[in-house]
Amino acid sequence: MFHSRTVEIWVGLFVAIGFAALFMLAMQVSNLSTVTGDDGYEVTARFENISGLKVRSAVTMAGVKIGKVSDINFDPQTFEAVVSLRIDSRYNEIPTDTSASIFTAGLLGEKYIGLEAGGEEELLLAGDELELTQSSLILEQLIGQFLFSKAADGDDE
């Protein structure tokens, strides 16, 4: 074959660039670098209402992402949502009385779970349940309550 060496060099370059691009997509673009795979531990939390929370939603503590929602189930006995949180194994010193709340990023943004550390000495272990939870705020309900209280105020006058 003619120009055999040039061709080989170009092909080598092409393959290298291609894999570099794949590597960049994996490391720089995706969450591979922020959450290290599945080697975290899982805890559960029960909420009355999780509306808008999804699998893969973020779990944060003091605004820092420390894990993600790995599973969402419905408990037919208690009519509650059972959410499994996979927390990165780096963050393994969380007290047992930590509370979990569902927040919204911005007014219309994504739902995420925020954890607030308690004061217990004992630490959370895999399979534990977070007892203190606060459900998602539902915009319609808030507006409804607001209007209702306004109307009530109006009656008083």
Partner: peptide, 15 residues
């Protein structure tokens, strides 16, 4: 073999 590499390059450059 080429197309996946080309598509990855396309996405990376696009980002």
């Amino acid at each position: 073999l080429s197309l996946p590499l080309l598509a990855a390059i396309f996405s990376a450059i696009g980002v």
